[in-house]
């Protein structure tokens, strides 16, 4: 079941997960702030994944700028079992990062296709609908509140 702190992400992420047949997915801001998740069972996992995804995206973007002047786009790590797909999508004037974990029930081509549909859906969300509330300055409280929503405790 997809759970979202940001309601505007609920339908697009649900559609992406269902159609692309990915096992787990998380959507977050480039800062690492979690926006929605599907398939994770522990808050600790989501926190760790978001931190890692934000760091990978920041590193890959900077590496792209250093070598070619432009940030790199989607990233895929293949393995014999599970695979990960990480990509940014423009959402209004901001950016949403999505990490999807999938296995051989689907394929990279199918995941890429439905991620493009997800990106089209979130690209048209108005900025006023996209607002998830400003950070209060108390990061721990924000994190605790968001994780509570994502895991159905709020």
């Amino acid at each position: 079941m997809t759970r979202a702190v940001a309601p505007w992400l609920d339908a697009p992420l649900t559609d992406f997960v269902r159609q692309a047949r990915v096992g787990m997915a998380v959507a977050l801001e480039p800062s690492g702030r979690v926006l929605a998740q599907h398939g994770f069972t522990r808050a600790l996992d989501v926190m760790a994944v978001c931190s890692l995804v934000a760091a990978i995206h920041a590193s890959a973007s900077e590496l792209g700028r250093q070598v070619g002047g432009r940030p790199f786009g989607p990233l895929h790590h293949g393995a014999s079992g599970q695979q990960v797909f990480l990509a940014p999508a423009a959402a209004g004037s901001g950016t949403v990062l999505v990490l999807a974990v999938f296995d051989d029930r689907t394929s990279l081509g199918v995941v890429r296709h439905f991620f493009a549909a997800f990106a089209r859906a979130v690209a048209t969300v108005p900025d006023e609908d996209r607002a998830t509330g400003p950070l209060t300055g108390d990061f721990e409280r924000d994190l605790g509140r968001n994780l509570a929503v994502l895991f159905g405790r709020a």
Partner: peptide
């Protein structure tokens, strides 16, 4: 790209 993605998935 779309044709490749879905045809390959179907074949697999």
């Amino acid at each position: 790209d779309t044709l490749a993605a879905f045809a390959a998935a179907l074949f697999q």
